[in-house]
Amino acid sequence: MGQQYARNWKASFTVGGKALDPSSLRMRFATQQKDTSTPHVLNLFITNPSRTTIEAIREEYKKVEISAGYDQDIGTIFSGEIIQVRSGRENVVDTYVHILATGSERPRNFAVVNKALAAGHTFRDRVDVAAKALQEYGVSVGHIDDLGNKKFPRNFICFGMAKDLLREVCEATGASWHIHNGKLNILKNQNTLPDGAVVLNSDTGMVGLPEQTLQGVIVRCLLNYRIRPGTKLQINESSIQRAAISPAYAAGAQNTFFRDQSPNEALQSGILGIAADGFYKALLVEHNGDTRGPNWYTEIVCVKADGGYSPALISRGISDAEGN
């Protein structure tokens, strides 16, 4: 990561090759991106746009892309489709337009599969069928982990929603799928994206201290477009603030995730969600920025990169590498 000063950003709205760039106005944005099939979300507020700009966005433009970073080092943090445009007044002086957009919601909700696979096909063959259906809605293939070489002894009819086929494959192979900026990614629960680890400490932009929670370890840093769901993070274990147990009567099950053990037992069991080697996998990434204010951060919820787990993951059917 280079020097993190001299903020830079760009917002563009497009349709049919025609583009609109309101980056000279004040923008406040918040994105939410998960490693699940749930479409990524953008809330974008533009202050004091002209009536012409508001009407153009509402009537003409269908896609929005936000890039952010520092100086010449910027990258895309969101790309998706506009689903609502509304305008209003913040006070007696300032007006705003609010754009709500989602990433690849239409492919997820409308892509269908209808194909027969012969005996001897693999899980990857089923993924390829779903990927082809998504491609018709503009989704390309990103990173797909090795799903094993198991060959099915019978033929298989792929019929129905592409998202259901992907869900079935992921449940069977211990993986999760998501679409990030128009690319389909499938990661095994104990794997991360192959882009290398992003080191987070006070020298690289980490803000405050990471905190252990039931959802995972929460860490905040200066806005970093390189961090996305599935990214590998490196965080010093000693900087993570341990969660406090609850004295509530009904909190017994919750407290088992934070019970007092020797450091080695806690690290090996995964109960505390603290990685001995300092490597974590990003599950939830939120980019928040204000082009004329102090807000310019990325907040991440992460777990151990080699198969960590938490109650939030267990509710999704994801356990640790040993199946606990």
Rank of each mutant, 00 (worst) to 15 (best):
N8M: 05
K18Q: 11
K18S: 07
A30N: 13
T31M: 09
H40W: 12
T53Q: 12
E55C: 10
I57M: 11
R58H: 14
R58G: 12
I66A: 10
S79K: 14
S79W: 07
I83T: 12
V85F: 01
R86S: 15
S87D: 11
N91D: 15
Y96Q: 04
A101T: 02
H121P: 04
D125V: 02
E136G: 12
H143I: 11
I144D: 04
L147Q: 01
N149V: 14
F152R: 04
F156C: 00
E168S: 12
G174E: 12
W177P: 04
L184F: 07
N189E: 15
V199H: 01
N201F: 04
T213G: 05
L214T: 05
L214M: 09
R226F: 13
S239I: 10
A243D: 06
P247I: 09
A250M: 11
G252I: 09
T256Y: 08
P263S: 05
Q268T: 14
G270C: 00
I271N: 08
D277Y: 09
F279H: 15
L284I: 12
T298D: 07
T298I: 08
V301D: 00
V301C: 13
S310N: 06
A312V: 11
I314F: 10
G317W: 07
I318H: 02
S319A: 13
E322T: 15
G323M: 10
N324F: 11
N324P: 03
